[in-house]
């Protein structure tokens, strides 16, 4: 995975709570066996009208949010299905961070795995950011992974929690599987213990 230290860019506000992964990437796009190329299908059914053309009202289709790198969302974003395709689609579309009052458990994990910075902020801070993003189209922030801060050029500053292990993984772009494989002897010892237990005295 590529290291992620900063995410800087335009903020796009999606003011809905409980957005499920079926909305982020509808199931008709889960039949592909590739890991890339999902960006065009991000929020497909909300982004497109029944005839397939882009709905100009939808936030990601509006000129002022073009190229946005930070998605602002309502609470419980990413609930429902475990499909990592949701995180892949966000990353593929260009998002490097998702900011919400809360993120669903599996989705949050999938963000880490995909190199998207999951930022949970208190509701009022998210609302403050939403207000700024709407009042000042093209509003930009900087997400600083090492410092655990999100800052705007207008003085907005908020801190977010990341546990130290997760932070290091993002910053160093560590290969999770590689880290676990370093503990191969302990895994083998555990397996031997389990086998003895299951086979009984």
């Amino acid at each position: 995975m590529k290291p992620v230290a900063f995410v800087e860019g335009i903020v796009a506000p999606l003011e809905r709570a409980d957005v499920d992964t079926d909305q982020i990437i509808p199931k008709q796009f889960l039949k592909r066996i590739e890991r890339t190329g999902y960006g065009d299908f991000l929020f497909h059914d909300w982004r497109r009208r029944p005839d397939g053309t882009l709905d100009p009202q939808f936030v990601l289709n509006r000129a002022e949010y073009a190229g946005a790198r930070i998605l602002l969302a309502g609470r419980n974003f990413g609930c429902g299905s475990s499909r990592e395709h949701a995180a892949w689609a966000l990353a593929d579309h260009g998002f490097g961070a998702v900011v919400a009052p809360s993120l669903a458990d599996i989705f949050r994990e999938n963000c880490f795995q995909t190199g998207i910075v999951p930022v949970e902020l208190p509701e009022r801070e998210v609302e403050s950011l939403v207000g700024r993003a709407r009042q000042r189209p093209g509003y930009r922030v900087l997400v600083d992974v090492a410092a655990g801060t999100i800052a705007g050029d207008d003085g907005f500053l908020a801190r977010f929690e990341l546990d130290p292990f997760r932070r290091r993984r993002l910053l160093e772009g560590l290969d999770d599987v590689g880290l676990t494989l370093q503990h191969d002897r302990e895994i083998a010892a555990f397996e031997a213990r389990r086998r003895a237990e299951l086979e009984g005295p």
């Binding site: 475990s82 995180a87 795995q113 999770d176 599987v177 676990t180």
Partner: peptide, 18 residues
């Protein structure tokens, strides 16, 4: 519990999850 595809790969390779 349910996991994402990266974790599926992790379990394939290690039979463990952090």
């Amino acid at each position: 519990f349910g996991i994402g595809t990266s974790q599926v790969e992790h379990v394939f390779a290690t039979q463990c999850l952090p």
